[in-house]
Simulated scan of single mutants.
Amino acid sequence: MTSFADSLKREIARIARKELRDEITTLRKNTIAQRLEISAMKKQMGAVQSQLKKLARGNPEPPKAPKLLDSASSAATSKGKPGRKAVFTAERLKTQRARLGFTQDQMARLLEVSALSIWKWESGGAAPRASRVPQILQRLALGKREALALVTEVE
């Protein structure tokens, strides 16, 4: 038979593990994000160093500007003009939804995602996958009639 002290110790340990689980998960996510950022910075640094070596050799070719590390530019798509990028932002999604007069559910049907995704994107809690951003931006640029036709077509 276990004593009261043993039961209390096991319960305290269980609660401590439960409380630490969320913190450890957050730390792991931060670590992964930082490792990805470090990797991108190393690549960028390598490109800058190779350009520096070319300049040191007296290469007449002008150096290309290195791609700066920016979470917004990774989700960008070209809009046709060189050097200009169309970027997905939560504010842009909110503005376009208001312009179209759509609910989050209607916007979700237009973009072929869940209403929860729309809510998370608008609140800034998440962002769409980079592969989906061009399609989303294209649909956000539609006029009200075209968008409404697509939404009713999806239903």
Rank of each mutant, 00 (worst) to 15 (best):
S114W: 03
P134Y: 03
F88S: 02
R109E: 15
E155M: 05
T89S: 11
S3N: 06
R132W: 04
M107P: 02
D70A: 01
M41T: 08
S39E: 14
V87Q: 08
G101I: 00
E153R: 10
L137W: 07
A47P: 01
V87T: 09
K67C: 05
G125M: 05
K144M: 06
M41S: 08
D105C: 12
T25N: 09
R14W: 05
L150A: 05
V113K: 04
S73R: 02
I38S: 10
A76F: 02
V151Y: 08
S123F: 02
N30G: 14
L110E: 06
I32K: 12
K79C: 15
S114T: 11
P128L: 01
S78N: 07
M107T: 09
A86E: 14
G80C: 03
K67L: 05
P60C: 00
A127K: 10
A75Y: 14
A47F: 09
A72F: 11
A98F: 11
R97T: 15
L55G: 02
E122P: 09
K43I: 11
K144V: 12
S39I: 06
K29L: 13
W121Y: 13
I15F: 02
A76H: 04
D6H: 14
P63G: 04
L116V: 10
I38C: 07
A40H: 11
Q135V: 13
T26H: 05
L137R: 10
Q138S: 06
E122T: 08
Q34E: 07
R17S: 13
L20F: 11
L68V: 03
M41E: 14
L93K: 03
A149E: 13
R129W: 06
S131P: 03
A98S: 06
F88G: 04
